[in-house]
Design a protein around this nucleic acid. Structure first.
Lengths: 222, 222
DNA sequence: CAATAAACCCCAGTTTTTTTAAGGTTTTTA
DNA sequence: TAAAAACCTTAAAAAAACTGGGGTTTATTG
C-alpha cells in the first residue's frame, strides 16, 4: 500500500476543500492518497520546502490566479510552479486556470511545462481522477478546453516573435500604442509598422484593432 | 437509435478488420455504429464521394502511410485528409500514424488540423473508444504519445521560419547541403549560415549535424 | 463643441539582418 | 588518392526592420 501525496494550492478555501474531498476518494490501484492544501503563494512555498526533507509530493495542483485580480500580486501560481520545478523536479505539476486565456496557457506551457493543465470549468470528479492517473503514468494531461486551445495554436502556421506577441497581448488589454512602444523598447512608428504587419498576417488589413485581436484570439495567440 | 457512421482507411487488410471489429462493438449511448473500410487512397476517396449524396461519415479514420514506404506514392493519408476536409467539412477526421514522427505530426496538425491523432502503438480497444467518444462530443482527441510530442513543441520557445524547418527536415533524411539549397531556393552559403544559426539556437555549436538533428528531435521539430 | 491627445499613414534616411559570391581549407566519399 | 562535398571567412549587395518627422484622421475629454 503506497501513499500518493498531493499538494493543492488555491486561494479559495472552499474550492480547496472540494478538491481535497474528491482527490482523497479516488481509488487508484493500492494507493492511499493524502492531500495537503495551501491558499497562498507563501504557504504553498513553505509546504514544498518542508517536504524536501521528508516525503516529497507526487503531484502539485496549482491555481494560476492566487490573488483577487485587482491588488498588487507579488507572486502568482506561475511563479510557484517555476519554483517547484527547481526544488522538486520529480514532482508532477498540474495547473488550474479559470479562463482558457490562450496567452496565459501558452506562456505557462513554455515557462513551467507542467505535466497537466486544466481549465476550471472542465474540472469535475471524473476529470480530476483522470488527471491524477494520467499524470502519474504517462503525462501530460490536458483538459478538454485546454486541448482546444492547444489545437488552435498547433494548427496555424503563423510564427510571431516575442515583440509581436507582446504587442498582441497589450492590444488585447487596451494598452495605448505609445505605451506599448515603451514597454517593448521600440519607437512608436515601429509599433505601428508591426501592427500593420500583424494585420496583414491575420488577414485583417485596413480593419481596426478589434478585428486583429479577434483574429489573434481565434488562432490561439491571445 | 441513431447510427454513427465510420470510415476507416488503412493499407493493411488485417489491421482494418481489427479496427472494424473493435469499433462496431463500442457501446455508445443509443448509437448504432457502422464501419466502412478502404485500403487505398483511391478506394477511400471513392467511399467519401459516394457518401456525399446519401449519408455522410461522422468519423473518418486515416492511416498516414497508405503505401509501403519504398514505392512512389502518388497520394498519402495526409492528402486524403485534406480532400476529406474539403468534401465533408463536418466529418471528424482522426489520423493514425505508426511513428511519432514530430515533423509529420506538426505538418498534419497544420495542414489538416484533424479532430484526432493517434500514434499506432497507443491504439487499443480502450483508446479507440475514447477517441470516438471524445471526437464526437468535444474534440480534439490526441493519444498519449501524440500528446507527448505536442507537449514538446508547445514547451519550447524556439520559433523557426519555414526555411529553417525544411532544412532540419532535409538534414534528418540525409539530403546534401547543396541539394537543400536547391530545394528551398537559397544559395548554399545561406544554407550554411542558417545551419550555423540553428546549431547555436539548439546549443550544438561546433558540433556535427547529427547533434543538431538529435537536439531538434528532442524539442519536437523533427 | 472645441482643444488636445492619440492613432494612423507615408516618406526618407539609417541600422540591422540576410543573402550572395568568391577563395581557401578540411572532411567525406568513391 | 582524386573528386566532391562541406565548411569557414570575408566583403559586398539586397532585403527587412527601425526611426523620426510631418501631416491627416479619429478619439477623448474638459
Amino acid at each position: 500500500m503506497n501513499t500518493l501525496r498531493i499538494l493543492a494550492v488555491d486561494d479559495h478555501e472552499m474550492t480547496m476543500l472540494g478538491y481535497k474531498f474528491i482527490l482523497e476518494r479516488i481509488v487508484f490501484d493500492d494507493h492511499n492518497i493524502i492531500v495537503d492544501t495551501a491558499t497562498t503563494y507563501e504557504a504553498g512555498k513553505q509546504k514544498i520546502e518542508e517536504s524536501l526533507h521528508s516525503f516529497k509530493y507526487d503531484i502539485i495542483f496549482l491555481d494560476v490566479q492566487l490573488f483577487p485580480p485587482n491588488e498588487e500580486q507579488p507572486h502568482n501560481g506561475e511563479d510557484l510552479g517555476i519554483l517547484a520545478r527547481q526544488l522538486v523536479p520529480e514532482s508532477k505539476i498540474i495547473f488550474m486556470s479559470s479562463f482558457s486565456d490562450n496567452y496565459r496557457i501558452n506562456s505557462i506551457l513554455k515557462s513551467v511545462d507542467p505535466d497537466g493543465y486544466m481549465v476550471k470549468t472542465d474540472i469535475d470528479p471524473k476529470s480530476l481522477e483522470q488527471a491524477v492517473k494520467t499524470v502519474t503514468s504517462q503525462p501530460p494531461y490536458y483538459s478538454s478546453k485546454a486541448l482546444a486551445a492547444i489545437r488552435k495554436k498547433m494548427s496555424n502556421d503563423i510564427s510571431l516573435d516575442e515583440n509581436d506577441k507582446k504587442i498582441l497581448y497589450h492590444l488585447s488589454i487596451g494598452t495605448k500604442t505609445k505605451d506599448i512602444a515603451e514597454h517593448i523598447g521600440l519607437g512608436s512608428s515601429s509599433v505601428e509598422n508591426r501592427k500593420r504587419h500583424l494585420k496583414s498576417l491575420f488577414g485583417t488589413e485596413k480593419e481596426n484593432d478589434l478585428a486583429l485581436i479577434l483574429a489573434a484570439k481565434n488562432r490561439g495567440f491571445i
